[in-house]
Simulated assay, not measured.
Amino acid sequence: MYRVVENVRRKHLEWVNAILDFKDWKRARLSREAGINPSTLTKFVNDTSGTATLSTEVIEKIAAVGGIPPFERKPPAMQRGLAEDEATHYDLVIESRDSAGTLRKMLVELKSMRNGIDPWILRSRGLETAGYLPGDVLVVDMNATPSNGDVVCAQVMNAMGQAEILFRVYEHPFLVAASMDNSLRRPLLVDNERVQIKGVVVTMMRERSANAA
């Protein structure tokens, strides 16, 4: 029985240490981010009996902020730099969905005239009541400084340590959705660590429907 507990403890300890290395945090920082009492980790790490383990509740709280799944030693492999759930990057080389490639040509010309321009295809309903619909191309100025009321491009680190791109309205110091979808309406605090503004939307382009006259 002791051997089983010892193995469990070792897995818990290796996992916590992997998170500390991955995040470059001290135990106090991990405790604060996870919302647990600092003494919980201290007692666990310094236990001399070799029997102390983490409770399920503590494991769940640490997993929510640690970026590494429970008892793994590395973060999940990422095939792309961004987990683009709410928006996808508009590839100026291959995107030409309208027959003449008019939109692509306009974006190429715009990028040639203005530094820091980056186009994205909106995939979510996060801005629908502000007039931005899924499929719209949002042109982002990565060099612009956001002001209250601007639609911005933001990078958010999820619980697995992966970066996601989303678009929201900036209402200092929060990002808020303009949507009827309640699941998208939770404000996000811009802390420049977990949530960072990457640029400001300067224009929107929408391809004309093939059925339009």
Rank of each mutant, 00 (worst) to 15 (best):
G135A: 08
E60I: 13
N182S: 15
L166I: 07
G35L: 00
D47Q: 10
N37G: 00
M142V: 13
K198R: 03
D191N: 11
L138T: 04
E109R: 15
I62N: 01
V5F: 11
V65M: 06
N115Y: 10
R27W: 07
F174N: 14
L127P: 00
E86V: 01
L54G: 02
W120N: 04
D47P: 05
K74C: 12
F44M: 03
A163W: 14
A163L: 08
L175D: 04
D191H: 11
L166T: 15
P173E: 01
R206N: 03
R27S: 06
I165Y: 05
G66F: 02
E193N: 15
V5E: 09
T102K: 09
G116N: 00
E86L: 06
E164N: 10
D150C: 02
E193T: 14
D181T: 05
L133R: 02
V5N: 11
T203V: 12
M180G: 09
A213C: 08
L133E: 05
A154C: 12
E60H: 13
A159H: 11
A18W: 00
A77P: 09
E60R: 14
V8D: 10
R123H: 06
I94F: 04
D191I: 04
V190M: 03
I68Q: 01
V16C: 07
T40I: 10
G199P: 06
T51D: 09
D24A: 05
D85A: 12
